[in-house]
């Protein structure tokens, strides 16, 4: 259950930053991005996957959250 920071990079892509590992990766697919729910399964550009308990609203980024490694 790593602590990660989600933010938008200069190009507007969602990136996931694993604080402890100092590792940043672009999110290529996000399960819920629409109104009502935001989060769920995330697919990163290096192939790894994480799960974020869906939030009720689209959050204000950057945001530090706990995610589950899948």
């Amino acid at each position: 259950m790593p602590n990660v920071m989600l933010r938008n990079n200069a190009a507007g892509q969602l990136v996931l930053y694993i604080t402890k590992k100092d590792h940043e990766e672009t999110v290529v697919a996000l399960e819920h991005s629409g109104p009502g729910a935001w989060g769920g399964e995330m697919q990163l550009s290096d192939g790894s996957r994480f799960y974020l308990e869906p939030l009720e609203q689209t959050p204000k980024l950057p945001l530090t959250v706990r995610v589950k490694r899948l």
């Binding site: 920071m5 933010r7 930053y17 604080t19 950057p62 945001l63 530090t64």
Partner: peptide
């Protein structure tokens, strides 16, 4: 970069 990320958040 660590503190910069925090300042941003």
């Amino acid at each position: 970069n660590y503190i910069s990320r925090h300042l941003e958040e």
